[in-house]
């Protein structure tokens, strides 16, 4: 009897194993038939290249605004399995879909954070000295930066030197750029002096003038920080970007007159997120991307969540937050677009 039972169990196990094997083979076949597609934002090009090199995922680089626009407008398949971008974009896109009565696109409205990096300013020393004269407590922050930008020419800025010509502040474009909208959100929080900024606040004419001033000094295409360092202060007086990009380049900089690295208050971080679509393909993208990038994030200057990163001398990250919620950020993008 026990032998028969054993034989029966063995038979069942073999059948189950066969089914399991069949399922695995079918999945592999299906996986082969379905190449994985990931969209990556241009700010993360180095990471995108690593993913492209270390996995079979087809990686397409596309500005966040374009992907977001498609996500919001689509009432069907997006044709991708994942979107590697920065924090607010998937949430903003989902909010846009919700407003149109469309179902959720990604597995979650707030994808988990893979890594973080603070927003920083790199300022040439002589420009920093002039800016400090125009900022409360000599602390360079977004509000006073916008006010200086509004004067347009250094000859009109107390402490500025007329030969410096126009004020040039490079901000990542909030209209298109992944990090840009976070930067503008942080700037708005500093302008109003409180974190609970609402879309209604943006009707304020003085605020809109301030945004216009900031926009007037910003190039249509933000140069890379390497370009700024290579060409010197003639290209930009102030460069706003991500610590992950700016700090390593500054560490390598070997010329006189090195730009100073500032963390404007309130310290704001840009979060690296991977939004995936429901289903096995999305799951595979999540696993493959996590595995491909985990050893490289710190090398690329990102701070791993929960850890100090590779640069202990840099200031610790705050609790995060400090940026308006996605709906408000979307309204802020509109203010930027409308600014003269």
């Amino acid at each position: 009897m026990p032998r028969r039972l054993f034989a029966l169990l063995a038979a069942v196990a073999m059948v189950a194993g066969a089914f399991g094997m069949r399922h695995l083979l079918d999945q592999r076949k299906e996986d082969k038939a379905h190449p994985l597609n990931l969209i990556c934002v241009p700010d993360l090009t180095a990471l995108c290249q690593i993913i492209g090199q270390r996995t079979d995922i087809n990686v397409t680089v596309e500005p966040a605004s374009q992907t977001s626009g498609r996500v919001v407008a689509l009432n069907g398949a997006l044709g991708i399995d994942g979107w590697l971008t920065t924090g607010p974009w998937p949430s903003m896109a989902e909010a846009g879909r919700q407003a149109k009565g469309l179902p959720r696109m990604f597995t979650t409205t707030s994808p988990p954070v893979l890594a973080r990096t603070p927003v920083v300013l790199a300022v040439w020393p002589d420009r920093a000295a002039a800016l400090r004269q125009n900022c409360p407590n000599q602390q360079i922050g977004w509000k006073c930066l916008g006010s200086v930008a509004g004067k347009r020419q250094w000859k009109d800025v107390p402490g500025g030197n007329p030969i410096w010509g126009p004020v040039k502040i490079a901000l990542p474009d909030p209209g298109n750029d992944a990090a840009g909208v976070t930067v503008l959100g942080a700037a708005a929080v500093d302008y109003f002096g409180r974190p609970d900024v609402a879309a209604a606040d943006f009707e304020d004419d003085a605020f809109r003038d301030w945004v216009s001033g900031l926009k007037s000094t910003t190039p249509t295409r933000e140069p890379t920080f390497s370009e700024v360092l290579a060409t010197g202060k003639s290209l930009e007086d102030v460069y706003a970007g991500l610590e992950a990009d700016v700090q390593p380049a500054l560490a390598q900089y070997a010329r006189a007159d090195k730009p100073v690295l500032l963390y404007p208050a309130p310290m704001t971080t840009v979060d690296l997120v991977l939004a995936v679509l429901p289903g096995r393909a999305g799951q595979r993208v999540r696993v493959l991307v996590a595995s491909a990038v985990k050893d490289h994030l710190a090398d690329l200057g990102w701070r791993l969540t929960g850890g100090p990163g590779r640069q202990p001398a840099l200031p610790a990250l705050g609790a995060g937050g400090g940026v308006p919620d996605p709906g408000v950020l979307d309204a802020l993008r509109l203010v930027w677009k409308e600014a003269a």
Binding site: P166, T231, A254
Partner: peptide, 25 residues
Amino acid sequence: GNPSVPVAAPINAANGVDPGQPQTT
């Protein structure tokens, strides 16, 4: 082109040029 390399001679005043310029690109 790589800013980790300093701008040095012959880019100097002795040759009629100024490595601190231009002011605006």
